[in-house]
Design a protein around this nucleic acid. Structure first.
Lengths: 211, 211
DNA sequence: GTCTATAGGTGGATAGAC
DNA sequence: GTCTATCCACCTATAGAC
């Protein structure tokens, strides 16, 4: 009955809902299912969140907030544009390893956008990360380390796409790598993360800069 | 009542279902909705397909078949590994412009895999395309035009990820490009396609090969 | 804050006429 | 092959006891 225990019941619902929404999506996930997974009475969901939709929004907010904070902190901390690219991709990979639900929720939300149910907030925030990364790439071009015949905004999309797609397509990639359709091992995922940073860098660096 | 008209009723259901499944997913799309969108009686869906699930499978089969045929033909026709990379990315972009539902259905299916509903066939086929592309990259490495310090399978994933992610994230990218949250223009999409081919090539080519 | 019971609505699927 | 009518299961949400 204390504030802590209340928060805990609420959080257990949030955690269970996040996992179920990520794997099944909003529609097919039922209130009863969430209650059972959370070890809580389904009626509590209405007490704490009002409706299934609002619970879904709360789940999204939490995930997006965490992802964004991580991305911005990483970009801010990097000393040079090439380091920023490498660090961002590495942070992206570490983030999705720790929060495998995040890209699933995010991508579902993007696909659902034309179903007019997506949060405008998500779109704004996603666009915000792109802009920050784009600034870093422009800076690298001004410093003469990145090629000038690259559209910075396009390059930002290409850079970010790799880890997200890798995570989403993990079952198919697991088969491709002979590691089964349940997805690749964590070691392979980390190796891909290092590759993705280098791949983007080599695509961006002027030829003389390449070691 | 002719065979052609029968096929037409069936195809109208398939077309309507494809669009609805792509935008909303399987769960939230109702049989009645599909019937209305197709201009057909919902009961016909059971006559032709047996169940909602089997209709969904038929939709997937059609899309995957088209995508695969296009990809393999493109790779087969390219004379050199660099040309193959460029041509594959260009074909990918043209395909998604013509079939905007395809990547949505495919990515939904991948995300849903842990919900144990995905087709093993899709995973096998996706892995097949990766393998073909991977062979092209290895060939380029043997010929000395592509860098040897790149894992070919990772590079295949990075190359393919760009256009698919661009399509999925189109609403966010639309905002980012100041073209509204309904997505970017076709001209911008084509420009991105050209960029993505070059991005992957620069990431792969040995330094001396870069013009 | 937490639980039970249930109302109210909708969805997938089928039976059977035409 | 196509349509109408309908059954049954299930889901969201609420009312109200504790």
């Amino acid at each position: 009955m204390t504030a802590v225990e209340n928060a805990s019941a609420r959080d257990q619902i949030l955690d269970a809902a996040e996992a179920l929404f990520a794997v099944q999506g909003l529609g097919p996930t039922t209130i009863k299912e969430i209650g059972a997974a959370a070890g809580q009475n389904p009626a509590l969901i209405y007490y704490y969140f009002g409706s299934k939709e609002e619970l879904y929004r709360a789940v999204l907010q939490r995930v997006i907030g965490a992802m964004l904070a991580r991305g911005e902190a990483t970009l801010d901390a990097a000393p040079t544009p090439p380091e920023a690219i490498r660090a961002l991709v590495a942070a992206q990979l570490e983030f999705v390893l720790g929060h495998p639900n995040a890209p699933r929720l995010l991508v579902r939300e993007l696909i659902d956008h034309e179903a007019r149910r997506a949060e405008a907030a998500l779109l704004q925030l996603a666009a915000g990360v792109f802009k920050r990364l784009c600034g870093v790439i422009e800076q690298g071009q001004e410093q003469g380390v990145f090629r000038r015949d690259v559209e910075p905004r396009f390059a930002a999309v290409s850079t970010i796409s790799q880890v997200i797609y890798f995570t989403i397509a993990r079952p198919a990639i697991g088969l491709f790598f002979g590691e089964g359709s349940r997805g690749v091992s964590e070691a392979t995922a980390r190796a891909f993360g290092r590759h993705a940073g280098e791949f983007a860098l080599h695509a961006l660096l002027v030829a003389e800069q390449i070691a």
